[in-house]
Nucleic acid binder design. Structure first.
Length: 432
RNA sequence: GCGGGUAUGGUUUAGUGGUACGACGCGACCUUCCCAAGGUUGAAACGCGGGUUCGAUUCCCGCUACCCGCACCA
């Protein structure tokens, strides 16, 4: 079932309210790049903070790292990206379909059925090339990482040497990755520069199934924390033919995005593919030696991999709501409170009454100190301010009126039902 | 990459071979005792580059970006 929210509504709101802009827009844009505005970056970080807190800080079996984006090119040779990311594509001269050469059987076009009418293969390497150092030659060649995972695998030994954790344990990382996609599509869904939140979870090979199932549960809980409705999430057990060759099981968590149902995140059992590759390439042992003296082994890996932008999009699409207040259409973002870019907005009921303004600024400063993401708003009239805060998903609005001056109470207005109640100023912090 | 479409203030739109209308939004001032009220006023647009033309936002060509379909997504 497709979502009822249109992609263009999301794009328009993101632009209008300062969440997400086209990258390099003023120069005509750059395909597949997006910039985050003041509210967007806050929302994005809130999601990332929640991820880090949930999977790193709140657990004692997962260690955080941040690896460099530029890596030794041997990393990509060992991981298979230099060859694997380098897909020869051919074009059917009859129907113009562009296809991966290795997907073609018996020289027959799977689209139109024509046999033997293909162009010469062309190479499409999805990794962005760059040069490290002053010279531009084969030796200085490097790539922007196309995934964050390798930055974890290359630090597996470092983390084991520093902490010697009991197995199973994981290493988590958030960071940018870059893929020179043939075509970027669907707003921030598939862009050329994007951010991942990934964990490589190292397990004994005999226990992978049990640990994999635990991860399914942990992921479900996290998606719930993001406020994503369960009926829009679909767990797809990826059939062998569609899995990466190293993966023995993959579950794609798909979401009903505005454009279509598509992958939100992947959970893959990667076996010992990556550590074994490093061991082979470097000659260094990736074996884990259990403290109880039992047989050493190369750990197997379970990888939950989130796309940050996809999470942002799913959160926005889920939060986007239209209802009616006094017969007027109202657009608001029903964001979970812990994700909202602005937690509370403070207004004087009337901005031409200095005593109200003075008091409102006092309350604003107090709350700002307490929560940080607090906005002062005295534009237009009170109704306008409520609607504006609705549209950026601010869960609470505090209004200072004449009663405030008399008894130190304020109006606390709720975004979702527009209901308001009076609260003592000194009880405000705990009411939010 | 292929095919199709679109491109006018922040958003949404009208329109024209003689540089452009409106709405909403935004700023200022006034007004306003709780849900986009009102008044005055201000800033703000023809995606970029060529060509044709006395003159191009408009016609033509190229490019860019986005949207739809296909392909791709290791």
């Amino acid at each position: 079932m497709a979502s009822e929210v249109k992609l263009e509504d999301i794009v328009s709101l993101c632009k209008r309210r300062g969440f997400i802009y086209q990258g390099s827009e003023i120069y005509g844009g750059l395909s597949g790049t997006w910039d985050y505005g003041p509210l967007g970056v806050r929302l994005k970080w809130n999601i990332m903070d929640l991820w880090w807190k949930t999977f790193v800080d709140d657990r004692d079996d997962i260690y955080g790292v941040e690896a460099a984006i530029l890596m030794n090119k041997k990393v990509w040779e060992a991981s298979g990206h230099t060859t694997g990311f380098n897909d020869p594509l051919v074009e059917c001269q009859n129907c113009k379909a562009r296809l991966r050469q290795d997907h073609i059987e018996k020289d027959k076009c799977p689209v139109c059925g024509t046999v033997g009418k293909f162009s010469e293969p062309r190479q499409f390497n999805m990794m962005f090339k760059t040069n490290v150092g002053p010279t531009e030659d084969e030796n200085s060649l490097s790539y922007l990482r196309p995934e964050t995972a390798q930055g974890i695998f290359t630090n597996y030994k470092n983390v084991v040497d520093s902490f010697y954790p009991d197995i199973p344990f994981g290493i988590g990382q958030m960071g940018k990755a870059f893929r020179n996609e043939i075509s970027s599509r669907d707003f921030v869904f598939r862009s050329r520069e994007f951010e991942q939140m990934e964990i490589e979870y190292f397990v004994h090979p005999d226990t992978w199934k049990k640990e994999f199932d635990k991860w399914v549960k942990d992921i479900r809980a996290f998606l719930d924390e993001l406020g994503l409705p369960e009926d829009k999430i679909h767990e797809l057990d990826v059939p062998e033919a569609d899995r990466a060759h190293y993966s023995k099981k993959t579950i794609d968590f798909e979401f009903d995005f505005p454009h279509k149902r598509d992958e939100l995140l992947g959970l893959a059992y990667r076996t010992d593919y990556d550590l074994a590759n490093i061991q082979k390439a470097t000659g260094k042992s990736m074996q884990y030696r259990p403290k109880d003296g039992s047989e050493p082994f190369v750990p197997h890996v379970i990888e939950p991999s989130f796309g940050v932008e996809r999470a942002v999009m799913a959160v926005l699409a889920s939060a986007y709501t239209e209802d009616e207040v006094d017969g007027e259409k109202r657009i608001f973002l029903k964001l979970p409170e812990h994700l909202a870019p602005v937690k509370v907005a403070v207004s004087p009921l009337l901005k031409n009454k200095p005593e109200l303004v003075k008091k409102a600024k006092e309350v604003y400063k107090t709350l700002k100190k307490e929560f940080g993401n607090v906005m002062y708003d005295d534009n237009g009239n009170i109704g306008k301010r409520y609607r504006r805060q609705d549209e950026i998903g601010t869960p609470h609005c505090v209004t200072i009126d004449f009663d405030t001056l008399a008894d130190d109470t304020v109006t606390l207005r709720n975004r979702d039902n527009t209901k308001q109640k009076r609260v003592k100023i000194d009880r405000l912090t705990e009411s939010l």
